[in-house]
Design a binder for these strands. Structure first.
Lengths: 240, 240
DNA sequence: GCGTGAGATTGCGCTAGAGCAATGATGGAA
DNA sequence: TTCCATCATTGCTCTAGCGCAATCTCACGC
């Protein structure tokens, strides 16, 4: 946090406290007000520009992030260079959770900001003693980890048993819930075919064909870099 | 372990302590000897016959298991009734980890014993206070959870990007390491085509064709219900 | 307004692997 | 020893979705 001219302070401490209370992140749930203040005091708010890398798979997991504003997502890159396994990190979610482990570890996935974002950052050697002091943090982390496992299991079952069209439809549905902006005639999604392809584990050609078909059927409107979805539910239902 | 006619005591307390020390399970790592005794004192050893269900997906997660003898595995059943996502639970591994969460939850996957097995069982309401008393247990649980996430990620990447033959070869390799019995001419695996198919997410036909091919090439010997693998490494290497 | 380059589309061919059916082997029960 | 259920094999067909190439179309910079 810079404090003088030219400098910008990301957020003041009281802004942070207000925002965290508003978000009520799972990770900080159940802490007494004064304990919460201690934990927050150990974090620094940090701003990330859209599309910047927050944490890198394989690098030493030395920072824990809590999203405050904006949106990020995680992904892995396979040896062939394909991005996959994309999990969204909205405000109130944590990223880089491996920093919380008692053994030093490497990040399991990469995290990048999608929009301009702000996250609270704890250094590993700041958060670890706090976790020991407030075991509730560990309990919360365990709940979050358990959610991850569930998400991955679902993802795995989906890629194994669902058709490409269903997967793409589901991705659109999730995106609509997550980053969709409601407007006059449906939910607007600013996303490229390529990104959809990565998330659904299909090729850009398949995405293009499916979107064209759904466009024809009036289920959505596609234009370069954006999709407007009438009804995500119907889309999933009608995707064979 | 029978003590007298009809009656059977699974294990004596000192046998349990010895066995746990021998296994050094991650979950109990770093506990002082006396603390360990307290934690073990809260568990009951229980015997499971081969192929019996230990925990059921979707049921209330009220018991935590620590494998002591034998072998178990986890799986999910999709709506179409396919078994998938099989993770092995050898001695020293935990099962039913969701019982450890501070919020009551349901089991995420089912667990079944493969061979005759013995597991230590903690009731959720016995282990939760212990976890609070010894936060090291939570730290350990978090490490284990983190491993699960890694396993699932790898599984997901594999099903998305690896060919069927590579997946089957990998499954054979893992099994060889896990439950394989070394013998004169390779590692013996008692497993049916159907089980292989479930684990690798392919059909029994594909399994049969691949095994035949590898048999022809001299990489393994297949007979009903068992496979003998010369060299798991070479198998994975030569699977396109 | 005009070019231009990245994204998007679409036709075509191709292949991995599923699914089915007929057939064959095997080992446990009686 | 025979029988039979279960498991395994193999040929055939079929299709979802990939991959390539040619073409098109925006959105943006100038």
């Amino acid at each position: 946090m810079k404090t003088k001219s030219g400098a910008r302070r990301v957020m003041t401490n009281s802004e942070i406290v207000d925002r965290v209370n508003e978000l009520a992140p799972d990770f900080l749930g159940g802490l007494a007000k004064s304990d919460l203040a201690v934990v927050l005091g150990a974090a620094m708010p940090r701003r990330f520009h859209a599309r910047s890398l927050i944490a890198s798979e394989g690098h030493r997991a030395d920072k824990l992030y809590l999203m405050i504003e904006g949106l990020a997502r995680t992904f892995t890159t396979t040896r062939e260079g394909e991005k996959t396994v994309i999990i969204w990190v909205p405000p109130a979610a944590v990223a880089g959770g491996r920093a919380l482990l008692s053994q030093p570890m490497e990040y399991l996935v990469s995290t990048e900001s999608v929009t301009d974002s702000v996250a609270l950052v704890w250094e590993r050697n700041a958060i670890l003693p706090l976790a020991r002091r407030y075991p509730r943090l560990l309990e919360n982390a365990l709940l979050i980890a358990s959610d991850y496992v569930e998400t991955y299991r679902d993802l795995h079952v989906a890629t194994s048993f669902d058709s490409a069209s269903l997967r793409v439809a589901r991705v659109l549905g999730n995106l609509a819930k997550g980053i969709g902006q409601r407007s006059f005639e449906g939910t607007v999604l600013n996303i490229s075919n390529e990104e959809l392809a990565n998330e659904a584990n299909v090729t850009i050609f398949t995405v293009s064909r499916l979107l064209s078909e759904w466009h024809r059927k009036g289920l959505l409107v596609k234009s370069r870099g954006s999709v407007v979805i009438r009804s995500p539910e119907e889309l999933v239902r009608r995707a064979s």
